[in-house]
Design a protein around this nucleic acid. Sequence first.
RNA 1: GUGACCGUAGCUCAGUAGGCAGAGCACCAGAUUGUGGCUCUGGAUGUCGCGGGUUCGAGCCCCGUCGGUCACCCCA
Length: 434
Amino acid sequence: MANTSSYKAVQGTRDILPEDAPAWDFVERIVRETCERYGYQRIETPIFEETGVYARGVGEGTDIVEKEMYTFKDRGGTSLTLEPEVTAGVVRAYLEHGMHTLPQPVKLYTLRTPLFRYERPQKGRYREHHQFDCEALGEADPALDAEMIALLWEIYQRLGARDIVIQINSIGDRNCRPAYVQRLVDYYTPLKEDLCDDCKVRLVKNPLRLLDCKEERDQPKIAAAPKMADCLCEPCAEHFAAVRRHLDALGLPYTINPLLVRGLDYYTRTVFELAPEQGGRRQSAIGGGGRYDGLAELLGGRPTPGIGFGSGMERAIELLREQGVKLPEPAKPQVFIAALGAEAKIAAAVLAHDLRAGDLRVQMAFGERSLKAQMKAANNSGARWAVIIGSGELESGRFQVRDLAAPADAPEDEKQRAVARADVVAWLLAQCQP
RNA sequence: GUGACCGUAGCUCAGUAGGCAGAGCACCAGAUUGUGGCUCUGGAUGUCGCGGGUUCGAGCCCCGUCGGUCACCCCA
C-alpha cells in the first residue's frame, strides 16, 4: 500500500521541514536582535480580523481587497478575513489599546507573521507566506523614516545578503497627490490608443501604476511623463529632502526611483523598497514599505502618523541560499546509545537522561534491532560518540564508548574503549566540552 | 483571472514503434550469535495525478480536470 496520504498541502502553501527550520530560526534571531537594538518591541496580532480592517485600511480598489482576500463568515455570521498584510492589524491594535498615551513613537515589530493572499503561486509568491514587519506610530519626523530604512538595510546586512539596493520615492500626501494623478491622467489620455491593454485599465483604475508598466512600447511615454517629485507640495518636498539628508548622513546606498509606487491606498510621502541588485526579474523585492499618515483615521481612530515595512521571509531565505550564504543546519546528537536487551535498554534510557541533564544532545536506539542496525543508525545520526550497552557491559559495569569520527582504518583500541558505568557521564561531558 | 511547460516508487528520473512498470539514491535484512563508514547479496514499496475516450491492448494517442513549475497581473 502507498504510505502517502491522499491529502496534499493546499495550493500555494508549503511545509517548513526540519532541514529548513534552522534557517528560519536564524532569520528570526537576526530580526529580533536588530529590532531590539533599534528600540522596537514585539507585537503579534491575530491572524484574522474583521474584514473591514483590511477593506477600509488597505483600500477597496486594491488588488488585495478586490480579489485576493480569504474572507469567510464565522458561525456567528461575522465577516472575517485572514490577514493579507500586517500594517492594518497593527494600527488597529495601537488604536484599540490606546497606545497614543505611550511615549511616541511606538515602535513595533512582528516575526514570522503568516499572511494569506489568493494569488496564482509562482517563484517567490505563495498563498501563505510569512513576513517580519516593523511599524512606528505616532511620529511624522522624517528622521524616523530614515531610521526605519536603515533598520531594514541593517537586517539584511547582518543576514549576510550582498548587493542589496534601496529605492525610495515620495508619492505626496492628500494635498498634492490628487493634483499629480490628474496631471498624469491628462498626460496619458491623448496617448490612450497607443497604450498596452494593461495600461488602458490602469489609466482609469490606478493611474500611478502606469509608471511601472514593463511593456517596451510604453517606456518612452513613462520617461516623458510628469514626475511626482516635481509636483510635491511644500511640506512633502521638505519631508522628502530631510529623509534624503538623513540617509546621506548615514551613508546608506539608496537611489531615488521616481517610478516607485506602491499598491496600497494608505501610503503617503515616503515609500521604499529593498531588492537584490541583479534582481531584474519580478518578485525580487525582499522588503517594502512607506509612510501611512492617514491610515489610523481610515480605521476610525484619531489622526496618527505612521511608517512601516514588511519583508518576505520565504524570499529572504531563498535569496540567501541563491547567494550561497551558509545557513544553520539541524542540530545533530552528540551521543547515540545502542542497547541490546530489555535491561540494557533501561540502562540506556537512564544514561540518556543523565547526559541530557548535562546539556548534551543524546539519542538512543528504539525497537529491537540488531547492534549492527543500531550502529548504522548511530552513524547516520551524525553523533560523534556511540555508547554500547549489552549483557556483558551490565555484568562488568563497564560500557563500551566508541568514537564514530575516528578514521576507518584506525586501530580498534583507538576507536573504542570501556568506561566504568559510574564515569560515563563525566567522561562524555569532558569529551563534548568545547 | 491569462499563458507556456510538466505530473511514473519516499527522492532524482528512464520507459524504445501503443505489447508483462524500471534504474540510481534512500530504506530494511543478510554476508560477521554484539559493532557504523567501503564492498557484495537479497527484499519491500506504484491507483504511471484523476476522470473519460480511441484501441484486441494505453505510462505512451485524444478530450477534460486537478496539481506543480515559470511568466503576466499584482505583491513580500
